[in-house]
Design a protein around this nucleic acid. Structure first.
Ligand code: ZN
Length: 283
DNA sequence: GATAGACCAAC
DNA sequence: GTTGGTCTATC
């Protein structure tokens, strides 16, 4: 369930299902997404959940007893929370991790592709781990601090789409919101980041932040529905996965190409290469 | 910088 | 062949 909005919803699910409760047993499948021996999971038994944190797509849960859990959903992870008594078959399909609580309820991580990451942190804060320290500013803050974003990116030599996906610059932008944000800001994805004007970068910061917030406020359920599981193959995006279809703003045909191994979608008319987004001011 | 592949499973 | 993630190696 990558990208920030989905992970934020996952964080809320974790808080709702875990906050203040005591753990009885922790179960996990051997191997990915678990990145440590299953034995280490006993560290949580008898401990209570303190807080659930999120920066970008990275989740961290702190417990009493100075233990923590780092959680990354990868490409296909999702959180399921089940109340007491409602227990069914176990384990459910693709269930990889389950925290059983003393009140009889449980919270699970399901991860079909096993590209997620789960790791126990002992003898130190989850916030001191490389996974956490590596992350840049959370993308939800972009709307309030576009200047910080500009400051962070303006010397980057990579194409802007590639820089957007770098979690150490801004944490939380994934393949969809990179394309969506660039379209909203009218910037060509192959544009060199450092050649972009300040105004263009700030516009982009706001566009990405707004797009994510819109998804969070419009998403009715507790979970995001993926494109592949949309009822009538309805696509809520402006350019993402719309290759060959007309741009909503100008009718030009949406193009697709690959950057850094990922699909990029853009409108050739709304997002021209060069042009005003990189031109220096004339004196 | 830009690839290509690795990790994974499913459509 | 594709997929909303990330890491490594290599030109
Ligand atoms: Zn257009």
């Amino acid at each position: 369930m990558p990208e920030l909005p989905e992970v934020e919803l996952a964080a809320r699910q974790l808080r709702a299902g875990l906050s203040g409760r005591a753990v009885s047993v922790v179960w996990a499948t051997q191997g990915p997404p678990l990145r440590c021996p299953t034995d280490e999971l006993v560290a949580f038994e008898g401990q209570s959940v303190l807080e659930v944190h999120r920066v970008g797509k990275q989740l961290a849960i702190t417990f009493t007893g100075d233990v923590g859990l780092l959680l990354h959903l990868g490409m296909s992870g999702r959180i399921r929370s089940t109340g007491a008594g409602a227990s069914m078959a176990f384990p459910l399909p693709h269930e990889r991790l389950r925290l059983e609580l003393v009140d009889g309820s449980h919270v699970s991580l399901h991860d079909v592709r096993r590209l997620g990451r789960v790791r126990v942190v002992r003898g130190g804060s989850v916030f001191e781990t490389p996974e956490w320290r590596r992350l840049g500013q959370d993308a939800l803050e972009l709307t309030e601090t576009p200047e910080l974003f500009r400051e962070r990116l303006c010397r980057d030599r990579r194409p802007i789409k590639v820089a957007l996906l770098d979690q150490s610059l801004v944490a939380g932008i994934g393949n969809i919101y990179a394309s969506e944000g660039l379209h909203q800001a009218g910037i060509h994805p192959r544009q060199s980041t450092r050649k972009l004007q300040s105004g263009a970068l700030c516009r982009l910061a706001v566009a990405v932040g707004e797009a994510m917030k819109a998804t969070l406020t419009h998403e009715p359920g507790a979970e995001i529905t993926y494109l592949s599981e949309h009822p009538k193959s309805t696509n809520p995006f402006l350019v993402y996965a719309r290759e060959g279809q007309p741009c909503f703003a100008c009718e030009a045909t949406i193009e697709r190409f690959v950057q850094a191994g990922r699909s990029t979608f853009m409108c050739p008319r709304c997002q021209p290469f060069g042009e005003e987004s990189t031109e220096a001011l004339r004196s």
